[in-house]
Computed example of a mutant assay.
Amino acid sequence: MKAIVINQYGSPDVLRYEDIPTPTLKPDQVLVKIHASSINPVDWKMRQGLLQPLSGYNFPKILGCDLSGEVVEVGEKATRWQVGDPVYTFVNPVFGGAYAEYVAVSAANLSYKPQNMTDAEAAGVPVAGLTALQGLLDLGQLRPGQKVLINGASGGVGTFAVQIAVAMNTEVTGVCGTSNVDLVKGLGAHTVIDYTQGDFTQQGIQYDIIFDAVGKQSFFNCTKVLQPDGIYISTLPTVDNMAATLQTLFSSNQKCKLVLAQPIRRDLDALRDLIESGKVKTIIDRTYPLSDVAQAHTYSEMGRTVGKIIIAINEGLQTINID
């Protein structure tokens, strides 16, 4: 099968488009033919070697975690699934495997692909969508009527967070750059703050939940715009935020929490329900073929992505690049 592999850590130049053996199954796994994947920042952080304590030094490695595709082989204990089932999920980014034509996936971590999404759209959902869903609902205990601020509202996680918070009947404020204000309004945000024109931490409005989808603020910077029992949630485990998480665990009404998405079937099902009801969609910035993952990484590292960058593995998927 074709796959993107690395034999060392480094720049996008270390990414190689190669033929490697198709994975073999364990009894509790299924083999998925991947039609599409997507780029997540954790992918290029892995490639750079920033997560070496977790990823180790065994090469070659296949990167990538998001996937949408179809089941082509079923392990003897994976009786829930049948060949031909359309599925989506993500695999552990430390081990990767989704920048490839096939991947072996735990049967327990799969969900049926949303029926009203293409594979390209579905491949953009798992990591970003679950980060938003699990952050807001599990950590934030999001409830109707609350005031929620999403920092980084036009990015991969942020676009899903805005839509999920709107679907939960909360009052949503999105923070983004000038060029993306209309997009975030179109996702349903009631108020949009252009960060080039104003700093939300200085505006005196207090929120029940601040979801920092880009890790650009810290809990300590946000305390004065959090309600006394408010919750700050970040996707980035900085030293400040890890310290704040421990500190507020016991000693403060205000809480700092860090979200690390898990491929839980129940939550993938919940996302599918929101998608099929028309409340959540994937915003696609660009689509690249598998052979151009290096170019996709370079673009992602620039930090200007709006929504998701998709990797088309099925040759029938259209690839687009919009400047």
Rank of each mutant, 00 (worst) to 15 (best):
A100H: 01
V103W: 05
V103L: 10
F59I: 06
V94H: 11
D85V: 06
P93Q: 07
Y88P: 03
Q82T: 13
P86A: 09
L110H: 01
E76T: 13
G84R: 01
G69R: 04
G84A: 02
Y88A: 03
Y102T: 10
F90R: 06
L67V: 09
F59A: 00
L110S: 01
K113M: 12
G69W: 03
K77L: 15
D85P: 01
P93E: 05
S111M: 11
G97R: 09
V87G: 14
L63R: 02
D85L: 01
L67E: 00
Q82R: 15
G97A: 06
N109H: 08
G69I: 03
L67Q: 02
F90S: 07
L63M: 11
V91F: 01
K113R: 15
A100K: 02
I62L: 05
K77T: 10
A107N: 04
E101H: 10
L63A: 11
E101N: 03
E76G: 11
E70I: 10
Y99R: 00
A98P: 05
S68N: 00
P86R: 14
E73S: 15
P86F: 05
E76R: 12
F90G: 06
Y99F: 12
V103I: 14
G64A: 06
P93W: 06
V74C: 02
P60M: 06
D66P: 12
V74P: 03
V72P: 10
S68K: 02
L67Y: 04
N109K: 12
I62E: 08
A100G: 00
T79V: 13
E70Y: 04
Y112D: 08
T79K: 10
D85R: 05
S111H: 11
F95P: 00
V71D: 09
T79E: 08
R80L: 01
Y102H: 13
V94F: 13
V105P: 01
V71L: 11
V83D: 07
G84L: 04
S111V: 07
V74D: 01
R80Y: 11
Y99E: 09
V74W: 02
Y88W: 04
T89L: 04
Y88D: 00
W81V: 14
Y99Q: 01
V87H: 14
A78Y: 12
L63W: 05
Y99W: 05
A104R: 07
L63G: 05
G64K: 00
T79I: 14
Q82W: 00
W81S: 14
P86D: 13
G64E: 12
D66E: 04
V87D: 15
K61M: 15
V94M: 14
T79W: 00
S111N: 13
D66C: 11
K77P: 00
V83L: 13
A100F: 00
G75Y: 09
S68Q: 00
A107V: 01
P93C: 08
I62S: 06
N92C: 13
L63T: 05
K77E: 15
D66R: 02
A104S: 10
S68G: 02
Y88T: 04
A100C: 03
S68M: 02
K77I: 07
